[in-house]
Every structure is written in structure tokens, then in C-alpha cells.
């Protein structure tokens, strides 16, 4: 465990809590892509199946359970509790464009051809593209509320910090996880355009348009 990893996890947790807090306080999920949130719930579900087979540490178990709970509560808020405020007309990204290639790739390129390992690989690939429906929605409506931009910033920052963590682990432990690193780079690239807007426009206007 190094500083980059801890900061990455904190950033990830902060992003999810910011989003939940925003929905809860405003009693509205306007501007949030339900499809992206459903994909994240699927990512955590398929990745954390090792909760049942493998104990790594108390920290690991607790964080996994928190991430799973947060993502399910978010999906529940969007598709049930605050469904009336959900902007489904603008959440029109075609999920099959992500799910079909990601499923195919996880069968082709994995560490071991076993169900748990294929599902873990699927979750890593899917996470790298899961934000696309949200970014698509923002480009379609042309705006994002301030809290949504903070959410996206911390969500992007988390994987960028993981990249630093992987560089650190490579040099200190000679640890190298090719699937996670390549997907993590792809994932971070998707946020670069957003990071640029967040820093240049978001801060002074309070919103990204």
C-alpha cells in the first residue's frame, strides 16, 4: 500500500459520495447518466466476486462492500426513487457498443480462462469505458452541473493516481499487471478532455458547458 493507492481509493470514494450526496440533497438525478451508473454497478459486481473466495485484508473487504453499496444505491435512486427527474431522453448511448466488444475481449485476453478471472477481466475493460454514456450525455445537452463536474474530476483522478501507484509498485515490488495498466491508461485518456475543461472553464464559471 503506497500513498498513490490510498489517495486513489479516497478519490474514488469521494466521487461516489459526492454523486450520492448531490442526488439526495437535490432529490433529483438530472444530468446524471443512469446507464453509466448501471455499468459501474456491473463493474463492481463482476470484479468483487472474490469477496466470497479470497480474503485479502479488512481494508480490501470493507472498501469493496462500500463501493458495491454506493453503486447499487445510486442506481436505485436513478431508476426508482427519483425516476421522475431522470433525463432518459438524453441518456441514449447504445450500451451494446460497449458490452459486446468488452465481453469478446475479456474472453480473448485474460490471465486465466476461468469464470472468476474472465469476469474480473470483463470488469477491468468495462470500467475503462463505463463513463462514456455520461460524457456522451454532457456533450448532447451541452452542460453539466458543478457537482457533476467535481464527481467526474475525482473519478478521473482516481485512475490517474492508480497509474502512479502502478509505476511505484513496478519499481518497488516489480509488480506489473498488464491488463489493469493498459485499461487504466485508456480510462484516464477518456478523462483528459474533461480535465482540461474542468481546469480552464469549470473553476471560473462554476460549470462546464
Amino acid at each position: 500500500m503506497n500513498l498513490f493507492r490510498i489517495l486513489g481509493d479516497v478519490s474514488h470514494l469521494l466521487a461516489m459520495i459526492l454523486l450520492l450526496g448531490k442526488i439526495w440533497r437535490s432529490k433529483s438525478c438530472r444530468g446524471i447518466s443512469g446507464k453509466s451508473q448501471a455499468l459501474f454497478a456491473l463493474v463492481f459486481t463482476t470484479r468483487y466476486l472474490d469477496l466470497f473466495t479470497n480474503f485479502i485484508s479488512l481494508y480490501n473487504t470493507v472498501m469493496k462492500v462500500i463501493f458495491l453499496l454506493c453503486s447499487y444505491v445510486t442506481v436505485y435512486m436513478i431508476y426508482w426513487k427519483f425516476w421522475k427527474s431522470f433525463d432518459s431522453e438524453n441518456d441514449t448511448f447504445r450500451l451494446e457498443f460497449l458490452l459486446v466488444p468488452v465481453t469478446g475481449l475479456s474472453f480473448l485476453e485474460n490471465y486465466s480462462f476461468t469464470p472468476l478471472e474472465i469476469l474480473w477481466t470483463f470488469s477491468i475493460y468495462l470500467e475503462s469505458v463505463a463513463i462514456l454514456p455520461q460524457l456522451f450525455m454532457i456533450s448532447k445537452t451541452g452542460e453539466a452541473e458543478t457537482i457533476t463536474t467535481h464527481y467526474l474530476f475525482f473519478l478521473g483522478l482516481y485512475r490517474a493516481l492508480y497509474l502512479a501507484n502502478w509505476i511505484w509498485r513496478y519499481h518497488t515490488e516489480n509488480f506489473y499487471d498488464q491488463i489493469a495498466v493498459v485499461s487504466g491508461v485508456v480510462q484516464t485518456i477518456f478523462y483528459c478532455d474533461f480535465f482540461y475543461l474542468y481546469v480552464t472553464k469549470g473553476r471560473c464559471q462554476g460549470r462546464v458547458e
Binding site: R5, I56, S112, T114, A180
Partner: peptide, 10 residues
């Protein structure tokens, strides 16, 4: 080929 390792990252 089995290159799977325990996953300690989230």
C-alpha cells in the same frame, strides 16, 4: 496459461 494472481487492488 494461468497467470492469475490474487487481486489486492480495488
Amino acid at each position: 496459461e494461468d497467470g492469475a494472481q490474487p487481486k489486492d487492488e480495488l
